[in-house]
Nucleic acid binder design. Structure first.
Lengths: 277, 277
DNA sequence: TTGCTCCTCACGTCACGTGAGGTGGC
DNA sequence: TTGCTCCTCACGTCACGTGAGGTGGC
């Protein structure tokens, strides 16, 4: 018989762990001194302790181990638990690998730029939402501003005339950009799950979006353009492809915040995972 | 400005998480109503929240994130943290992989045998320990029992005559098994870090051992032999090789425990990892 | 008598989740 | 007035680790 300290050295299991297993009823001393409370363990108990350690080593919880050891569990159930564990571990390996890739990407980025990137690109699942919109093929970039304003006025009127429940937030949807021009759609978000139907009212479907939030002047085209480029690089580097029209959501139109004209907008590109080879 | 529920939906971060970040001072509302305690958040705060989520996604703790965001940490330090994280993740992938292999081994074992294995093989690092021993080349297996008893008697005498501090536990060390015979050494463990020196007294070095505990009759050669075989299979299957003499440690000589003659012994093979290709 | 070992609480870890019990705004 | 949303505690998670404060055995 060993006192707990000796048994701990023998088995390489800490005294505190033995206390813990005792408290759980998972592994109790052969004998406990009635007066001192001293725990006494014996060699006889090694097989059980080794089974506990082996199962722990496979990643089972102490509760699961107790179940397996004390409740005459059949080989079938144990095999089932092992297969579940197998699947979990495969998932874990995959998750750690992907996380590792993201860390490495961030590392190479920081070494190229010499500082933390000023923006964060996140993947988000966007819920379906209703909009009222107007769309046009703008022949050249120079006309963009003018045409967009015109489109916005058109929608504004529709909202007013038809009393549409606008949330007040507007966005641009870029369908394509070819030699023929820029196919752009301006829109307002509508509240609720079924707003009054009519011309220009449609529902944007749920979709995965790679998104980045921009905070600064809306007129700083260089900064906004750089963000579009960064998004594109991120999408490719992370094994996605663009599968539809991108959006610019004007979350908060510029206003004077004490340190200049600052607004918040969000750029979104719908993406899909490219099956990795 | 958004109430917490709306902001939660907008960002896909739970209300409880936002509460938590607020409590930690990691991410606090733009404004808090003095009377109701209601938290109000704004679009302005999205960039910070996204950075938090991005860093969390890389596996950093909230405390580390607070440090990075609030204490003007240089690019150098961040790069260092990322490299550390990288190493940790590589380790994690490796660990999960090895654990997965063990789960799969266990699964194939249980499917071959139709039940949980009756013994557990564990890897343990054995500390250096002094012994007093006697060694002999036994020409044939038939003579083993007789010769071992003779060796034990010889050691017994030495212990008594020289008052060596034996722990009372004895063991056998199998050096080799060839056509010339079985090279066996019988020994007693000695107490303390420097026992009296003399003939037969030596120190067993620290070493990694694949070990299994046997509980049953010492005379059940079939069972003990099967365990030796199982140990050998385990060693190979786990990518180790045997690098020295195996041991049989007679932890608890057989005695009547109410259900027959039962003793406890431990089989140990010193092993080393074979570098995987 | 002095260390050494052992004992039993009680609390901390990490990032929240899950109620309980209560209040403010439409 | 009734839901709905929000609030603040307080406790649980998982496998122990880390003391604090006290006692038994050589």
């Amino acid at each position: 018989m060993f006192k707990i300290g000796d048994f701990s050295k023998l088995t390489h299991v800490s005294v505190k762990a033995l206390h813990h297993y005792d408290a759980l009823g998972l592994f109790q001393p052969m004998q406990v001194d009635e007066w001192t409370g001293y725990r006494y363990y014996s060699f006889e108990q090694l097989p059980r302790l080794n089974r506990i350690l082996a199962l722990k080593d496979l990643g089972f919880s102490l509760e699961q181990i107790r179940h397996v050891l004390d409740e005459a569990v059949g080989a079938e159930e144990i095999a089932g638990m092992l297969r579940l564990r197998q699947a979990e571990l495969e998932q874990q390996v995959e998750d750690s690998r992907e996380r590792l890739k993201r860390v490495e990407m961030r590392l190479s980025l920081i070494q190229k730029e010499g500082k933390m990137p000023s923006h964060e690109i996140v993947l988000k699942s966007v819920v379906p939402i209703w909009v009222v919109s107007a769309r046009e093929l703008v022949p050249s970039p120079e006309q963009m501003r003018e045409r967009c304003i015109a489109l916005m006025q058109k929608i504004d009127e529709a909202v007013k005339n038809r009393k549409l429940p606008s949330t007040g937030t507007n966005l641009a949807i870029y369908h394509s950009n070819s030699e023929a021009g820029i196919d752009v759609e301006m829109a307002y978000f509508l509240e609720g799950d079924n707003p009054p139907q009519g011309e220009g009212v449609s529902k944007l479907p749920a979709i995965e979006m790679a998104s980045v939030v921009y905070r600064g002047s809306y007129d700083d085209f260089a900064a906004v353009g750089a963000l579009h480029v960064a998004l594109g690089q991120w999408i490719e580097a992370n094994g996605y492809t663009v599968v539809g029209a991108s959006r610019e959501i004007y979350l908060q139109p510029p206003s004077n915040l004490g340190n200049g004209l600052v607004g918040v907008m969000e750029l979104q590109y719908p993406v899909e995972k490219v099956p990795s080879s």
